[in-house]
Design a protein around this nucleic acid. Structure first.
Lengths: 216, 216
DNA sequence: TAAATTTGTTAGATTAATCTAACTTTTTAA
DNA sequence: TTAAAAAGTTAGATTAATCTAACAAATTTA
C-alpha cells in the first residue's frame, strides 16, 4: 500500500516526465513546493520500491511499474473531475482541488461506478485524456495555440493550466471545450495574438495564455 | 486544521459519549484498535486544543466545541453514505468503508452539493440521523428490537452495526429500512426471539442481532 | 581551465502518530 | 482493609515526512 505522499510524488514525477527536460531533484522540489533534501530521501525510498531508477547525481526515471501506478492515480483524478462537473454540477474551475483529495480514496468499486455512470469517458473537463483501467492512455493529437497560424480557425480541446483563476477568466470569455478560436493577427514582438472567440468575442491572448490552450 | 487522526478520535469520542458508560482511555483504545499510551498522548493533545476536558485518571468529556466538530464529521459521513447508495447505486453494506475515507475531504462546496442533490435528507442508509450544517441532530425516537414485546409488529428504521457481513445477512432476509418485523415468540433463556419479516420470512434473531436493529 | 554558481547529498533535528516496557494510581475482591 | 487486578501514565524508541546547516559534485562562465 502506498502512502498519500508517495502517490503525490509519483504524480509529480509523471507530470515532469512529459516534458523534454530530465527529471531532477530540483524540479521535483519546485513542483511539490518542498526542499531538495526531502526529495533526495523520498527518491531513495521510491527507488527501493522499484517505482523509479535512481543513481546519485543522475537524472531520475520512472520505471514501468512507477509509470503504471502514476497513470492509475491520474485516472482516478480525471474521472473524479468529470464526475464532479457532469454529475454534481460543479464548475471546471473548482473540480481540481477536490479531485486532488478524492484521487487517494482506496476503492475500486467507487471509481468503477464513476466510470460506468460517465459511460467510460476518454477526456476530463480540461480536455486531458483519461487512462484506462490498465493505465493505458488514449491517443491524443491536440497542440498548443501558441503554435498556430494567423487567419485559421481552431477548436479548443484542452487546457494545460488547471488553476481556478485561469479557468474563471476563460469562463468570463465564454470559452469552454469545443469553443472555436479564430486567430486574427499574430504579434511577433511579444508573441501575443488577436483572436475571435465563438465568432463573437474579440480579445488579445498573451503568449503564456496561448501556451496553455490546446486546440485542433 | 485538524489531522485525519484527530478527526477519527473525535468521531470515536462522540460514539462513546452516546452510551451510559464514562469515556475512558481503555474504551477509546478498544474502539480505535490502538494501545492505551497512544490514547493518553492524543487525549492530552485534544485537551490542549479544547476539544475535550481531561484530568489524569478521570473520565474524559467532549467540550461543546469537540461535540460540534464530531457532529460535522458525522454529517459528512452520513451524507456520503446516502449519496453512495442513492445517487451512485452502491449497496448499504458497502458504503461505510468508502464514506470513512470521503468524510475527511475538505470542501464545503462538495458536501453542500451532495446535501442539495439528496434534498437535505434527515437519515442515512442505516437509519442514522444526519446532523445539519450547524451540527444539530434531528429528534429521533427509535429503540432496539431487543426491548420489544411478543405479539407486536414493528418497522425497521435503523441498524447499529454497519459491518458489511451483518448488512449482507440482512439482505439475504430481504430486510431493508421500512421492513416490518413481527415478534412471534420471546425466549427468556437466551433472549432470542422468533420473528416474521415482511409478513413472509420466518426466522430466529439472537439477542445480539436484536440489539443492533432499531425499530418504531 | 580554474573560479564561481548551481545542484545534490549527508547529517542531524522536528513533528505526528504509533509502539513496548516499566511504573503508578484506582478499583475490585478476598 | 489490604492484596491483587485493572486501568492509566511516563519514558523512551520507531517510522514517515519534513526541515536547516554544512558539505560535495557538477555545471557554467569568466
Amino acid at each position: 500500500m502506498m502512502t498519500l505522499t508517495e502517490e503525490n510524488y509519483l504524480k509529480a514525477l509523471h507530470r515532469l516526465s512529459q516534458t523534454e527536460e530530465a527529471i531532477t531533484v530540483k524540479r521535483i522540489a519546485l513542483q511539490l513546493g518542498i526542499k531538495m533534501p526531502t526529495v533526495t530521501s523520498m527518491v531513495k525510498n521510491l527507488a527501493g520500491k522499484k517505482f523509479i531508477r535512481y543513481e546519485k547525481y543522475k537524472a531520475i526515471q520512472l520505471t514501468e511499474k512507477g509509470r503504471r501506478q502514476a497513470l492509475l492515480i491520474l485516472r482516478k483524478h480525471r474521472l473524479t473531475e468529470l464526475f464532479l462537473k457532469d454529475v454534481m454540477g460543479l464548475g471546471w474551475e473548482e473540480v481540481h482541488d477536490i479531485a486532488e483529495q478524492i484521487e487517494h480514496i482506496q476503492s475500486d468499486r467507487f471509481f468503477n461506478r464513476i466510470d460506468e455512470m460517465l459511460g467510460h469517458p476518454k477526456f476530463d473537463p480540461h480536455g486531458e485524456p483519461i487512462p484506462d483501467a490498465d493505465g493505458k492512455l488514449p491517443f491524443f493529437k491536440a497542440f498548443p495555440l501558441s503554435g498556430c497560424e494567423a487567419g485559421k480557425k481552431y477548436k479548443l480541446t484542452g487546457v494545460l493550466d488547471h488553476d481556478a483563476s485561469f479557468l474563471t477568466y476563460l469562463n468570463t470569455l465564454g470559452l469552454t471545450l469545443g469553443s472555436t478560436i479564430e486567430v486574427m493577427t499574430l504579434h511577433g514582438f511579444d508573441r501575443s495574438m488577436e483572436v475571435l472567440l465563438n465568432g463573437k468575442v474579440r480579445t488579445v491572448f498573451s503568449f503564456t495564455i496561448c501556451q496553455h490552450l490546446l486546440v485542433i
